[in-house]
Design a protein around this nucleic acid. Sequence first.
RNA 1: GCCCGGGUGGCGGAAUUGGUUUACGCAGCGGACUUAAAAUCCGUAGCCGCAAGGCUUGUGGGUUCGAAUCCCACCCCGGGCACCA
Length: 940
Amino acid sequence: MTSYNPKEIEKKWADRWFREKIYEPDLEGRSASRRKPFYNLMMFPYPSAEGLHVGNMYPYAGADIYGRKKRMEGYDVFEPIGLDGFGIHSENYALKIGRHPKELARESEKNFYNQLKMIGNGFAWNERLETHDPEYYKWTQWIFVQMFKHGLAYRKKATVNWCPKCLTVLADEQVLAGECERCEAKVIKKELEQWFFKITDYAERLLDDLETIDWSENVKIAQKNWIGRSEGILIDFKIQGTSDKIQVFTTRPDTLFGATYMVLAPEHELVSNLKSQISNWGEVENYIKEVKSKAEEEKKWKTGIELKGIKAINPATKEEIPIWIADYVVMGYGTGAIMAVPAHDQRDFEFAKKYKLSIRQVIAPHFEDEKSKRQSGSPIIKRKTLYCILRNPRTDEYLTLDWENFGWHTFIIGGIEDNEDAVLAATREIREETGYKNIRFVRSLGRLYGSYFAAHKKENRLADAEGLLFELVDDARDPISEEEKKMHKLQWMKPGEIENFTDISSQKYVWEQFVKESAYIAEGILVNSGKFSGVDSEEAKKKITEFVGGKIQVNYHLRDWLISRQRYWGPPIPMIYCKKCEWQPVPEKDLPVLLPDVRDFHPTGTDKSPLATIEEFVKTTCPKCGGEARRETDVSDTFLDSAWYFFRYIDHKNKKEPFDKVRAKKWLPVDMYIGGAEHAVLHLLYTRFITKVFHEWDLIEFDEPFKKFRAHGLLIKNGAKMSKSKGNVVNPDEYIKAYGADVFRMYLMFLGPFSVGGDFRDAGIVGIDRFLKRVWYFKENSKRMKRIHSETEVILNQSIKKIGEDIERLHYNTAVSQLMILLNTLEGGFDEQSYKIFLKLLAPFAPFITEELWSGLGEKKSIHISLWPTYDESKLRESTKEIVIQINGKVRDRFEVQGDASEEEIKKEALSREKIKALLASKKPQRIIIVRNHLINIVL
RNA sequence: GCCCGGGUGGCGGAAUUGGUUUACGCAGCGGACUUAAAAUCCGUAGCCGCAAGGCUUGUGGGUUCGAAUCCCACCCCGGGCACCA
């Protein structure tokens, strides 16, 4: 046997596979192919010319294993690859190193494809595409034109996100926690006129259809939250003495009686309309200016100003309530105006406290909480009791008081320091004292008072109060009895009486801390609500809606997709502006609108793209009237390029249309899609939108792009996600050079579950290296037999089953471990048949070595198109079974039985064993539980 | 704050209709081969304890003959969303 030289066999087989086209499927839709098509797709990379790092390669290796198994199952697998070359990421890199993106693109194509070739994936190399290729972006522009023609692309002036570093606008989805998705600069707001796609028209379908697709659950949830459906009602509030109305959107009409003021967004049109009636207009105007210049995060403080001189009427109470404008109400959602219910909305509550606006409680928690028990399905009793013992260390007084409030059943124990031991001791004490088991420590009194007095800017009279506060969280016992109430000097108060509680003693501060620092936002029973008092929230929502004539309305968090980018490296938006005919699309015969070659592609920093400075590009004629006209100079968002690439893969040479319908029918939707979860509300949302649009244009018969989507995990190195900026990237080239592609990709799959990722460590890779070396030298080191032992046969069949199922579920790490177990077993004795099966099972993970060994057996056809092995159901179990003997649930002994022993036999054997007899001594078993083929538990 | 995911040996990680915790691998230890080392092979291995035995899946409770797994609460880590009315 020659020594294991991965480099040599990799080169040999890569060339041969390419020559023999074993990974090129029959894309043609009209020809009858015998094999069923399987579209195995992975998110294509966006090049940065620095090359791929290990973290980037991980998903490709994982996706390929899945595809290879499908191919061996007889499918005609299509595993395409390409480059998402256009976009800010590539352009920023070009700017950074001072080269032209076009030139750089040519280089990165070469680099990327070379790197991707190294990992031994079964890519259909002949079908690759690049989004910056005019043959591709011609159709991206075509999509834009169709969008315009169908009324789905429109221009509007809006407050948009502007990245001050990338110098362009960004879509909502590209802003992560106030920062630019690409460069992490703080995003600012700008008022600009831009192109948008009407994705909001599809909000409902995008949400509902999530139910129909087999996708990673976390991605579905992220999309669901992002689309953010909320059902509420619209209510009109009259403005006193005028015919004007303020319409608000609310999901809590049941709290209407508690609406003690209103708030408009500063940009709300009514504000300037009512200018003449607002007595403090000067101040108001100043405030609006101030808000506009503020960055997003400064707004967290919540500021506002009252519109003096006007009042609104609460339609339920008919009371006059003040109208404010404030920065915590945004124009972009609902109606840009709210009714403020400070008692039951945390934001309104904070605002009301700050500006001393009145707070009226209209919802009381359910006390006899049978209902909430049933609804939540949990045994929590939401009885509201506060029981407290306070010690004032100065006067050494002990005070006791209890009341019902919004909180929980609460205990305060005075005179105890705040440390772990004391907390534990006190917890025990309360448990014993009261019989309640689930007591939770909340905080110490020192801190409680500290924050209270700080918030109220008062001298802290109780700074060194010692004591601990506990609450009852899960009352498994019966409600408190009358005796106990007396014992703990419990004094009950109703929620309505709380406001009237004016005791000046220290308890008051506790009360304020709890009730006045937060709103009660849960549902309950209405109080202070006229004829609706006593009605349940749920029901009150309907009744009050009816009472004030509110209209049901569904709102979505999703905003329209902002498509324009003031940058160079993208497809020019194919639109022309004529003064007479307004916006006209570029005629389809004139597509593509080529991106002009310019030396200076730097972003201008204004609201215009670099293309605006090229007069030859801008100047054109109107396609409608032939008059003088100007081109749109912005380019479209990269995410448009990537939203439809998988359609083009199946027919990327088509010059007449974006793709052939017949091919689409054969190959689409994509059977399996693998990619990063970070695209949950970016690419994965846009692509669903575009697919639904295509469906509506009758280009395709389906309306969801990917039948199955699985998110892969991330590779971690030194405790952080691998990224160039963190400087912890691992270059795959060195590892592949040192160990070979088979070892490398198999190690990646072994280091953790594919959906989770894992920690890349050099130490672990030697294990796989040893394993594949053992595979290489297997035949000379192992015992060849005529027929394998029956135990070996069981492990072989188990392995076929487990590895097959593990690949299907993407549990590659456990599949690899099963391959190891199988090898360990076969080394003790194998035959030709079992050896071949082993190679087949290993083939998706280590395509090169298995191919080499396979051909060494005289096989003429590639192992990768051989048939995946099947297992024999009857050979999955060993003939002997180990039975565990437990006494009171603890393992004490074990013995073996042949085949399926009866319960009687197991019991007899177990009780007759010396060890068990000794342990049982004179005690008589109370009960014996037997689980067949598993265990026997003797209960004493 | 809200929504997801997670917490198991020295390490990466196995184990889910509740039934032997720690598969597989790394590192470790002992041995074989070798002048020696590397490589390779065989064996060993949760923790405490000389042992008998006890303890152990983030913490505290609960349900159960039996809990990593189910229920309640809390703590910690990772990710997403966040004035969305």
